[in-house]
Design a binder for these strands. Sequence first.
DNA 1: TGACGTGATACGTCGGAGGTCTTAAGCGAC
DNA 2: GTCGCTTAAGACCTCCGACGTATCACGTCA
Lengths: 223, 223
Amino acid sequence: MAVTDEAIEKIKGMIVSGALRPGDRLPKESELAADLGLSRNSLREAVRALSLIRILDVRQGDGTYVTSLDPQLLLEAMSFVVDFHRDDTVLEFLAVRRILEPAATAMAALRISEQQLDALTAQLDKLGEAPSVEDLVACDLEFHRGIVQSSGNSVLCSLLDGLSGPTTRARIWRGLTQEDAVGRTLREHRAILAALRDRDAEAARSWATVHIASVEQWLRSTL
Amino acid sequence: MAVTDEAIEKIKGMIVSGALRPGDRLPKESELAADLGLSRNSLREAVRALSLIRILDVRQGDGTYVTSLDPQLLLEAMSFVVDFHRDDTVLEFLAVRRILEPAATAMAALRISEQQLDALTAQLDKLGEAPSVEDLVACDLEFHRGIVQSSGNSVLCSLLDGLSGPTTRARIWRGLTQEDAVGRTLREHRAILAALRDRDAEAARSWATVHIASVEQWLRSTL
DNA sequence: TGACGTGATACGTCGGAGGTCTTAAGCGAC
DNA sequence: GTCGCTTAAGACCTCCGACGTATCACGTCA
């Protein structure tokens, strides 16, 4: 195994074992390199790799720190990965989202606060009747994120956040080509919100399923 | 933005735009560094980072290649990330798995082949009545992986693979073996398999839910 | 024709030299 | 005494050049 890969494993080990805790500062590059028995250049490769996936936070002029290791932060790296997938795998991502999002919406129906409900309502009202496609997509993303956050599971939230990347692309495409998609999306959002207000988990789940399935169906028919 | 980060973005852009396709070979380090306008050392940091998340495949003495970019390969990097999470977030990961795995099992019930069913049966038979903990854990992992693969969704499969990481699984099982969990697990596996044979998606989904919920319940009571 | 050796090629590792940014201590003015 | 600026130290950023090591392809020889 290359010395850089060894260094990655060793740093990982230090964190997993608890020798390095979230927020801790690492020894400076030259010291850490000496400790691990490799050159500063090779160590930097290891640190850079761990930095890309948000394990380490490198601050020039200051030092290198272990991040909070929040699920949100680490899974955020997933969206970077998802970007590499081409359209032919979008359907598979969408299928996973079709499983997770209704479940998250149902969970949210039992936990969401009145305050959050009002915020979602205001958000939908602000958009108006005939928004631009860009505004609609941005709003859609925000709407679903708000709901999923209310599910109370940060892992689930981050996962869906990452999965929404390709879906978003598809939805832009759809909005540009399918005439009634805008109005339909707005109506479905209202329906989901109403189900949440009613604390009706099953209705919320069903509307979320319908919402995603409509995108999926359209995508399947055009690919 | 640092030159290395720029290089990461540029290489990512070349792949996403299609200038570099899966399997393609990159220019050699010195040339690529010159093209992107940075030193070979800094470029290597970028390549190493992309290599960690399985975007690039570096072969000493040969060259650097774009990987297949299969969802399986890229999401495999997630298990690396999951390893960093502490016990207090295991429940959240388990909750997500509780959503995905029953759905995957239900999907599998409609698609799994007779051949795969026989393979799963043989696998359970081989384990016997009183297996060792190591064998049980390995078998459990393999059993679920086999089912999820039959769902036909590689993204879903990779995702669950990452969530069921060896670390998480091992931690859970370590304490679980004290109870009657072994026999219970074996019985539940048999039940899931029977549902699959009957092509009964709902029964398969329910058994899978029960299977995971029992682990979740135990974990919640002990943490 | 096939096995072997050798050279070319490309990645792996290293040490050192400046450069840039952040932080905090030192210092003077209000 | 407090605030703001200057300055110096510390740490990461980038680069260069050199050498080590693994792989592949070509040519040689049996």
